[in-house]
Amino acid sequence: MAKRIEVKDLDIYYDKFLAVQGVSMTIQPRSITALIGPSGCGKSTFLRTLNRMHELVPNARVDGKIFMDDEDLYGPGVDPVSVRREIGMVFQRPNPFPTMSIYENVAAGLRLNSTRIKKADLDELVERSLRSANLWEEVKDRLNRPGSGLSGGQQQRLCIARAIAVQPGVLLMDEPCSALDPISTQAIEDLMLELKSDYTIVIVTHNMQQAARVSDVTGFFNLRGVGQPGELVEIDETTKIFSTPSNKATEDYISGRFG
């Protein structure tokens, strides 16, 4: 089920403003790819083009191609709704639906896609998703309580459960730990490592230790200059990026943060 993503010569625009230029990369299935770089370099923007959330901004558009396995995500006749169904997303701040219970939050995506799902099947799927998100033991006694009653870290794991409940091929994570404390962060990172056996995971992070800890491949985004578009400077195996990057800018960024 984990899918491969291939990006070819992607330019991302807000109206006439070119935000990110010329990104090409291959994201391998069953791996974690981390995207790092300074603020405003377009890594979150890039992430949002992968499931076509980018185009929700009026006049936002892209040039270039993104393939998931062999399907062109921006091909003619492709429904963005189906793309988002296939590529799940976890956001910077945990965002469970406040009016729904924990159970309903996990079931939300499933209910969209198959209306006639049986209660017993739904129960099973919800349980399985919550178990996969390492949340089942903590919430199994209060599935009907509101999701907003959980702690921040639990809420974020609930959002992950919600995203994986519909069995996406790819999971995008936009700084999923930036609003969490270290212990919750640890739990999410452990979860990512478990999930990577089933999913393709792409994570945007500001925390370089995190990228070093969890990812197999790291891509470094940078701004060419003030007012210039962002670009993918280099992408390589994480160990290589953090030990012997081939690009000077990558080295500066990494050593600057560590130094």
Binding site: V81, R85, A108, A163
Partner: peptide, 24 residues
């Protein structure tokens, strides 16, 4: 955040409104 959460699950505009906007 909540609108995007439902859209990212693959909701159509109306489904997003029913999940996020109307309850809110």
């Amino acid at each position: 955040l909540h609108e995007e959460a439902s859209l990212a699950l693959g909701a159509t505009r109306w489904e997003m409104i029913r999940m996020a906007v109307l309850p809110f």
